[in-house]
Structure formats: structure tokens, C-alpha cells
Design a binder for these strands. Structure first.
Length: 202
DNA sequence: ACTCGGATTCTCT
DNA sequence: GAGAATCCGAGTA
């Protein structure tokens, strides 16, 4: 994929990211999945619709510094004491938009993913990569190893690729699991995909 | 230094 | 549908 794809506001790039391929090089081999669910998080330069749910809301910190860097890079954060979640940075350098990858449909390395998740090798796709914490565990993505890496460097163990697959219907809805700005329609998912996380009824 | 709560998931019932 | 597991970042003092 091209750098300029990500040098855009996250709410613009996020729906276009659906159907693209996320790949990770691990000690056991390459793993890959098709992106089927994402959420956009707006940078603090957006003043008309502030996004207090974004980690960049209060400005640069050591934790979120990657979000303020150039587009197409990997921001990984640790959550709830147990899980990692992976984002792609958006906007030109200096602005801090990001896209959270919430779900993948596995396309390569399902058995390794299952092993990484502690599941039987025949585990269903949604149990492998249906959810932001699950997909990081399945792909072996962690903050110490992958935060700050470039998705677009051909030598990078993290790759964002495009094949000629075109998505069908896209569903737009509020983001999941957040308290602030919970009404903004910034979640994008492929309709009728088994790996898309179900919307929790409060 | 201390406190609070979270861009989650699992295991029950 | 509820509760647990579990830790770090950020805010306050």
C-alpha cells in the first residue's frame, strides 16, 4: 500500500482499509488476515468533534508518541492488564489520527494462530482473530516488539498489503467499549462477516 | 507516591 | 449476563 493512503483523516481511511491484508512475520512463519472491522480515532487537532476516547486526546506522551509521527506506522497499546491492541497511524506527521484494527479474517497460518491463542488447530476463525485483543495474540503482535514499526517498509515484519479483493456492504456504527464520544459513527465493518465482533447490548 | 479505570476476553451460570 | 483476571498510563498531590 502507499504512504499517501494513510496520510488522510482516519475516518476517511478507515472504511477504505476494510478488505486489505495485515501480515506479520513471526518465528514460526508469516501470518496474515483480511481486515474486516476497524475503528477511527481522531487527533486532538480536530476541534469540531473532539474525541476524548482517543489516546492522543491530551497530547503527546511517551506512550502515544507514535500516533503523532508519520502515517502508516504501528501503534500498539496494552489494555486491561492482559491484552494488546494494534492501530495504524493516519494523518501527516504532527497530527495524531489512528485506526484501530478490531477484527481480521484469517488467510494464512491458521494453525499457528490457534497455537498462539492456546486453541485447538481447528478453532473457528472468529475465535482466532475476531476481536482486537484476540487478533494481536493470534498474530503475535506486542507493544515491546512491534510498537513504532513501519507497515509500509518492505523489510518490516509488519505489512499492510492490498490484493484485488473488493469488499461488499460496509456497516457504520458507534465504536465499541468506550465511554466518551460514544455516539460518533466511527466503527466500520464488513456486513455478514463471521469475524466481526457482535455489538454488546450494554 | 498514590489512585483510578480502561479502544478486552474468558469462564462460568 | 455477570464477574474475574490483571497492569500500566495519566492525573492529582
Amino acid at each position: 500500500m502507499q504512504r499517501r493512503f494513510f496520510a488522510e483523516p482516519p475516518e476517511i481511511a478507515a472504511p477504505l482499509l476494510l478488505g486489505k491484508i495485515l501480515a506479520c512475520r513471526t518465528p514460526k512463519g508469516w501470518l496474515a488476515g483480511r481486515i474486516v472491522e476497524v475503528e477511527a480515532y481522531l487527533g486532538p487537532h480536530i476541534t469540531e468533534t473532539p474525541d476524548p476516547a482517543a489516546h492522543s486526546f491530551r497530547g503527546v506522551t511517551p506512550r502515544n508518541a507514535v500516533m503523532f509521527g508519520p502515517p502508516g506506522y504501528c501503534y500498539v497499546y496494552f489494555i486491561y492488564g492482559m491484552y494488546y491492541c494494534v492501530n495504524v497511524t493516519c494523518e501527516p506527521e504532527g497530527k495524531a489520527g489512528a485506526i484501530l484494527i478490531r477484527a481480521l479474517e484469517p488467510v494464512l497460518g491458521e494453525e499457528i494462530m490457534a497455537a498462539n491463542r492456546g486453541l485447538a488447530s481447528k478453532a473457528s476463525p472468529e475465535k482466532l482473530t475476531g476481536g482486537p485483543g484476540r487478533l494481536c495474540q493470534a498474530m503475535g503482535i506486542t507493544r515491546p516488539e512491534h510498537n513504532g514499526l513501519d507497515f509500509l517498509d518492505p523489510e518490516s515484519p509488519l505489512q499492510m498489503r492490498s490484493d484485488n479483493w473488493s469488499p461488499g456492504e460496509i456497516e457504520i456504527s458507534p465504536r465499541i467499549g468506550i465511554r466518551h464520544a460514544a455516539d460518533l459513527p466511527l466503527r466500520f465493518a464488513l456486513a455478514d462477516n463471521c469475524c466481526v465482533s457482535r455489538v454488546r447490548s450494554s
